[in-house]
Deep mutational scan, measured.
Amino acid sequence: VQTVGQWLESIGLPQYENHLMANGFDNVQFMGSNVMEDQDLLEIGILNSGHRQRILQAIQLL
């Protein structure tokens, strides 16, 4: 089972590990259960829309 940090590294966005972990997104399986939306990522400080889309697309593959 991948950690959130390993998963972010695999999609090329390791800089957001602290954003996700500090806001309770600390379990890759949980994130894959379709609980995260674009607005959630924006609210936790991921401002780059391309990065948000990449995260959301990768979540669909979990």
Results as ranks from 00 to 15, higher is better:
Ile11Glu: 00
Asn48Tyr: 05
Gln53Ile: 10
Leu47Asp: 13
Met21Asn: 06
Asn23Arg: 11
Trp7Leu: 09
Leu8Arg: 01
Met21Tyr: 06
Leu41Ser: 03
Thr3Asn: 07
Glu37Cys: 13
Asn23Lys: 10
Gln15Glu: 09
Phe30Asp: 15
Asn23Thr: 06
Asn27Ser: 15
Glu37Lys: 15
Gly24Lys: 06
Ser33Thr: 14
Gly24Trp: 04
Glu9Gly: 08
Leu42Trp: 08
Phe25Leu: 11
Gln29Leu: 11
Ile46Trp: 01
Thr3Met: 04
Thr3Tyr: 04
Ala22Tyr: 07
Ala22Val: 09
Ile44Lys: 03
Asn34His: 14
Gly24Pro: 02
Thr3Glu: 07
Gln60Ala: 15
Met31Phe: 14
Leu61Tyr: 10
Phe30Trp: 09
Leu8Gly: 01
Gln2Gly: 10
Gly45Leu: 00
Gln39Cys: 10
Asn34Val: 14
Asp38Pro: 05
Leu41Met: 04
Gln39Asp: 13
Gln53Ser: 11
His19Lys: 14
Glu37Ile: 08
Ala22Trp: 06
Ser10Trp: 05
Leu61Val: 13
Leu62Ile: 08
Gly45Asn: 04
Val28Lys: 05
Leu41Glu: 01
His19Ile: 15
Phe25Glu: 03
Trp7Met: 09
Asn18Glu: 15
Gly45Thr: 03
Gly32Cys: 15
Asn18Trp: 10
Gly12Asp: 06
Arg52Gln: 00
Gln29Lys: 13
Gln57Tyr: 08
Asp40Gln: 10
Ala58Thr: 04
Val4Ser: 04
Ile11His: 03
Asn23Glu: 06
Arg52Ala: 00
Ser49Ala: 14
Leu41His: 03
Gly45Arg: 03
Val28Glu: 06
Gln15Gly: 03
Met31Ser: 07
Ser10Val: 06
Ile46His: 01
Asn23Asp: 04
Gly12Glu: 05
Ala22Met: 12
Gly32Trp: 11
Leu41Arg: 00
Gln39Ser: 13
Gln29Arg: 12
Gln6Gly: 07
Asn23Gln: 07
Gly12Thr: 02
Tyr16Gln: 03
Ile59Met: 13
Gly5Glu: 06
Asn18Arg: 14
Val4Glu: 00
Met36Pro: 13
Gly45Lys: 02
Leu41Ile: 00
Gln39Leu: 08
Val4Met: 08
Gln15Ser: 00
Asn27Glu: 10
Leu13Trp: 04
Gly5Asp: 05
Gln29Cys: 10
Gln39Lys: 15
Asn48Leu: 03
Ser10Glu: 11
Gln2Ser: 12
Ile11Asn: 02
Glu17Asp: 05
Tyr16Trp: 03
Phe30Asn: 15
Gly12Cys: 04
Arg54Asn: 05
Leu13Arg: 01
His51Val: 03
Gly45Trp: 04
Gln57Asn: 12
Glu17His: 06
Leu42Ser: 08
Ile59Leu: 14
Leu8Pro: 04
His19Thr: 15
Gln39Glu: 12
Ile44Trp: 11
Gln15Trp: 02
Pro14Tyr: 03
Met21Val: 15
Ile46Phe: 00
Ile59Asp: 03
Asp38Gly: 05
Gly5Met: 08
Val35Pro: 13
Thr3Trp: 05
Met21Thr: 13
Met21Ser: 07
Gln57Ile: 06
Phe30Lys: 15
Leu13Glu: 02
Ile59Glu: 04
Leu41Pro: 02
Asp26Ser: 12
Glu37Leu: 11
His51Phe: 00
Asp38Leu: 01
Val35Cys: 11
Gln15Arg: 02
Val4Ile: 15
Gly5Pro: 08
Glu37Trp: 07
Gly24Val: 03
Gln29Pro: 10
Val1Arg: 10
Arg54Lys: 13
Asn34Leu: 14
Trp7Ile: 06
Leu42Arg: 12
Leu20Ile: 04
Met31Ala: 09
Val35Asp: 15
Val35Glu: 10
His19Leu: 14
Asp40Pro: 02
Gln57Gly: 11
Leu42Asn: 05
Asn34Tyr: 14
Glu9Pro: 02
Asn48Phe: 03
Ser10Pro: 03
Gln57Val: 06
Leu61Phe: 10
Gly32Pro: 11
Val28Pro: 08
Ile59Thr: 09
Gly5Leu: 12
Pro14Trp: 02
Thr3Pro: 05
Asn48Glu: 10
Tyr16Arg: 00
Trp7Arg: 04
Met31Leu: 15
Gly12Arg: 04
Glu9Asp: 12
Val28Asn: 05
Gly32Thr: 15
Gly12His: 02
Leu47Gly: 11
Asp26Gln: 10
